[in-house]
Computed example of a mutant assay.
Amino acid sequence: MTITSDLGVDELARVRRVRAEEPGAIRAALAGRRRREVVRGDGRLFIVAADHPARGALAVGQDPTAMANRDDLLRRLAIALRRPGVDGVLGTPDIIDDLALLGLLDDKIVVGSMNRGGLRGARFEMDDRFTSYDVETMVESGVDFAKTLLRVNLDDAGTAATLESTARVVTEAARAGLPIMLEPFMSRWHDGRVVNDLSTDAVVLSIAIAAGLGASSASTWMKLPVVDDMERVMAATTLPTLLLGGDSGADPDDTFASWQEALALPGVRGLTVGRTLLYPPDGDVVAAVDIAAGLVHAGSAS
């Protein structure tokens, strides 16, 4: 599949050269980028997610290595970030550093992904400890927003440590004035793999648990899946919420329709979506991103 992007071979070669010869340029690129307010204009956010590779999740649909080619991923991200209505990007430091060197982060919200230790398919998958960004580094480097996955398994004693460590970073983020997005799930082991419970009751329960973590909820946002009875889901919290897209394999039209309905609910502030838009079935990244941007910023000039 050919992806049309004006991100050239020379630019990608420069990233590799700079990483080897001038690593200090990464810090300078992050410090020198033009920043923006997190919430502005219509108050809604459309964030493109690209933190999947670091947790060993390279598959999209039936392609088990769709996200393995870094140049291809960066080209897709370049297309998305240059489209109107795209407010920012979510990634681990390797992705964010590449994008900074490519000059793609000006006037964008940068969301730092914090925990990727529980690798997809590993025996230790529930041990999703913090192995990526930390609050101090994000504040120092000008990252605008933090994000952490929170999987709660009531049959796994390790969940207690996960809750404690998550509460700690929520507290740290609140003290630093750094918005932090929690992505909670009720999870369980099934046939040797971790499965998230996407029933309405389970999502509501996950919100109740996550919202209470930390010494202050002043900086806390939610990142929630679109499930049945989203009215009841959003009635469970006053925290600002972004909807996640996932890789459901559903018909794109059905997916967009479900997003549109959920975006109209009180408390929903926008979308954080990755694979569904970066790797659409027809390969048209521009069209997929533009549709999602239109849903988020409906009636807005942004």
Rank of each mutant, 00 (worst) to 15 (best):
P252C: 05
R27P: 02
T166P: 11
P93N: 03
S141W: 15
A235W: 01
V86I: 12
D97V: 02
A174W: 13
V110P: 08
R82K: 13
P280N: 07
S113D: 09
A218D: 05
L45Y: 08
A235Y: 01
V286A: 14
A250Q: 12
G274I: 11
T255F: 05
I3C: 10
V286F: 00
P23S: 03
D106T: 07
F124P: 07
A50L: 05
R269H: 14
V273G: 04
E125V: 07
L81F: 11
A49D: 00
G299H: 02
A264G: 14
G246A: 05
P84K: 08
V18H: 07
T159L: 10
R151M: 13
R19M: 06
A13S: 14
E136C: 04
V89R: 05
G118C: 11
R168F: 13
A250N: 13
G246D: 04
I180W: 14
W221C: 04
V169K: 07
R275T: 08
A20L: 12
A68F: 03
G118Y: 12
E11H: 13
G274C: 05
L81Q: 08
D6S: 13
L104N: 10
L105F: 12
P281R: 09
M181H: 15
V204P: 13
L243I: 01
V39Y: 06
A236P: 04
Y133S: 09
A236G: 09
N153M: 10
N153I: 09
G283K: 09
H190D: 15
F145V: 07
R34V: 11
V9F: 15
A173G: 08
D107M: 05
D290H: 02
R188S: 15
S217M: 04
L242D: 00
E261S: 11
V285M: 01
G245W: 01
L182C: 10
V233Q: 00
R83H: 12
R193D: 15
I180N: 15
V233E: 00
D71A: 11
A167Q: 09
T237E: 02
S187Y: 11
A28E: 14
A298S: 09
D156Y: 15
A146Y: 12
P23V: 00
T237W: 00
W221V: 03
P252F: 01
A210Q: 12
V227Y: 00
A264Y: 09
M1T: 06
A49E: 03
F46I: 04
P184F: 04
E172R: 13
L182E: 03
D106Q: 11
P240T: 07
A28R: 03
R116V: 10
I3V: 15
A173C: 14
M222Y: 02
L239C: 09
V194N: 06
M1H: 08
A57W: 11
D290F: 03
R83F: 06
D87W: 01
H52Y: 02
V289S: 06
A68C: 09
L77C: 13
R17Q: 08
R75W: 13
Q260I: 00
P64G: 05
P281S: 07
T237D: 03
G43T: 03
V195H: 10
D228R: 11
T220N: 00
V204G: 04
V273L: 01
F124R: 12
I26C: 00
I291H: 11
S141T: 13
R232E: 06
A173D: 10
I180E: 06
P184Y: 07
V227T: 06
D97P: 01
A25F: 04
G117I: 02
A292F: 01
M230F: 01
A235F: 03
E136N: 13
A235I: 02
F145M: 10
V89W: 02
I3N: 02
